[in-house]
Design a protein around this nucleic acid. Sequence first.
DNA 1: TAAATGGGTTACCTGAAAGTAAACTTCTTT
DNA 2: AAAGAAGTTTACTTTCAGGTAACCCATTTA
Lengths: 103, 103
Amino acid sequence: MNFKEFEQCGLKRSLDLLSGKWKPLILHHLFQEKEIRFIELWRKMPRVSKKVLVEQLQQMQEHHIIERIELKGFPPQVYYRLHQDTEPLGPALQILDGWGKNR
Amino acid sequence: MNFKEFEQCGLKRSLDLLSGKWKPLILHHLFQEKEIRFIELWRKMPRVSKKVLVEQLQQMQEHHIIERIELKGFPPQVYYRLHQDTEPLGPALQILDGWGKNR
DNA sequence: TAAATGGGTTACCTGAAAGTAAACTTCTTT
DNA sequence: AAAGAAGTTTACTTTCAGGTAACCCATTTA
């Protein structure tokens, strides 16, 4: 295998995009709740700083894994939801979730 | 979500175990070839040092993702193959591989 | 008027993962 | 006896994801 093939390995790419300290949990919540407010999400993960949570969310947006919806008004309201492209992952993530519980 | 729930998230656990700089590629090869010799695997990933490859393989053994088979004789022959527990991941990893190719 | 709110920034720090380079061991081949 | 092969190991360095703590902004409410 050469470097090109390395770069093209879809599995590598997927796992890179989905892993990270908090991304699996974010996914977990978004698959459950469809749409969630920033502050709610933050409260569900008490051990993350806002900064880190924001970073993870921004990266996931860039990679089209989630969408950010900002509503006018006060106090600010920002919702996050899964990007449409991420839906096909549902079955895969469910298998992984089950598998991960037994170790 | 409390910390306990965080620790119990199967998806998080799975992704932790499967990701890493070289693990997805190792999986990729083992799903293709069933059984592969250390040196062969190493040659297919020219940009890893042996040390790092050994480390990744050892971790994957500890986590029962792969098995190590050592044959008597000289030169040493060590084969790696998927652990039986890993087989149910096949479909999930295939979905991820496909998904990852489009980004 | 000052405190609280939601959704972030800014600046700086740290530890663990991964990298490099070399050596080790045991046997075979030349 | 010298060199090479397979599979590690050892010692040291580098990188960067994630961590902490404090601050910003515009409004509302007490």
